[in-house]
Design a protein around this nucleic acid. Structure first.
Lengths: 237, 237
DNA sequence: CGAAACCTTGACAATGTTCAATCACTGTGG
DNA sequence: CCACAGTGATTGAACATTGTCAAGGTTTCG
């Protein structure tokens, strides 16, 4: 059984009452997958997934056989919330671990029970979901207004901010491979590769494999943020 | 003062208890705007807007001066939900009536009071919001995987389904002007115009101004739905 | 080492944007 | 009632961006 304190420490669950936390702890499972495990994820599975560690790719296929990324979930992200109210969804998904990954798997009926009986928890859940929604909004805006280079620059910039590094020069690592990143940002790997070269030239950044060195963060901010309607620089992770 | 029964009839509010409905009815306002009225919409206004009738365009400007559509709200849609928990948002918005429009305007603090004190209402609110989120997901997918013609075809198809018209042949009217529609679908008016011509040729539909005649809905469904990962044909309005 | 997966590059095709010109429609004032 | 201005819609031509396909380079891992 999962430790109640473990649940209590997760931002999404921290406000649930101890009785409910106990029930969740009893009914949930912690699963780990090594890299590149794929499993289907449908309504019938009746589970909610919360990512404890690593990266999980959600994807599905269009009927003409093209794989499309639904989402890429990192630490603290989750999926399956639409199953709570049984909202008709564009199923079925598949999920794939794109790194070593640790998942908290909660049966939907238990989560539904908590959300319908614990008002404080429900409000916290709503709040988290509104943030998720806001990220979606921004991604949608970027897809319709920014070109490939802009979108990559914005992604990198948000990587910097997620690390809360206010320095002007810094090093960071892409969280997963470039092909996947390209797909998440709505472009082909070839386009991604070329756009990254644009960024090197225009913003004086250096890229070697997944390692990125940024000489001057301000140059990057100046480059990308005025194509965007958010406050500059944005604080959306 | 607004009639309590009026509130009770709105899907978003129907589950609130009568005491809260009364409070909302007392504190809210019904406003009407004629076409093309613009007003700013910021956190400081502290209002939640629910569209009773007509179409409301939400937009903002990037710092290089380009207008971008945030959303276009029709009957039963709403905005301002992120203000409830004071979620940092890419403000400020502007709003513009793109038809004669009737808005229900609720002070945020009153809505917050109801949502934090009325669990049943909060759950219903969450449910509605999850549907909104799902629409966002699909729009994001389409922007990254479908071309202009596909996106228009999908939009038209969903117009048909929103009217619950199962016939094979039907007539319908675009809800607002083509320039705006183009912008909402993430393309230029010129591209929209040309893509619409593609649709005429490929799917045997006829377009005259904002009037659309569809000879054979099946042709349209066959054309668009296999570029999409949703169940075919999709039931997302 | 060798295979497989990932990444990059070039050449070219497809798609979308920009700019300018023109057309269609609508409402206004003479 | 007509002329006219203003807005929205369409079209063509030039251009920019992105996608596709094929080839070769790089990295990783057994």
């Amino acid at each position: 059984m999962i430790n109640v304190a473990f649940f209590k420490d997760l931002p999404l669950f921290t406000l649930a009452c101890s009785e409910n936390l106990e029930m969740l702890a009893k009914s949930s499972k912690l699963l780990t997958y090594r890299k590149n495990q794929t499993f289907s994820y449908e309504r019938t599975k009746n589970i909610f997934i919360y990512v404890i560690k690593g990266w999980l790719k959600l994807f599905k296929e269009t009927s003409d056989g093209v794989e499309t990324i639904v989402d890429i979930l990192g630490e603290g992200n989750y999926c399956g919330e639409h199953f709570i109210f049984d909202i008709a969804e564009n199923e079925p998904y598949k999920a794939q671990s794109i790194s070593h990954v640790k998942l908290l798997v909660i049966p939907i009926q238990n989560l539904r029970h908590v959300i319908t009986h614990d008002h404080t928890f429900a409000l916290n859940f709503l709040k988290h979901n509104l943030r998720k929604q806001q990220r979606l909004h921004i991604q949608r805006e970027h897809l319709s207004t920014q070109n490939a280079t802009d979108r990559i620059a914005c992604f990198i910039l948000r990587l910097c901010e997620a690390k809360s590094l206010p320095q002007k020069t810094l090093k960071l690592t892409l969280p997963y491979d470039k092909t996947l990143l390209a797909s998440q940002l709505g472009m082909r790997p070839e386009t991604f590769s070329r756009a990254l070269n644009n960024l090197k030239r225009k913003c004086g950044i250096h890229i070697k494999g997944g390692q990125i060195d940024i000489n001057n963060l301000t140059t990057l901010i100046n480059y990308v943020c005025h194509h965007c309607s958010n406050m500059n620089p944005c604080n959306v992770h």
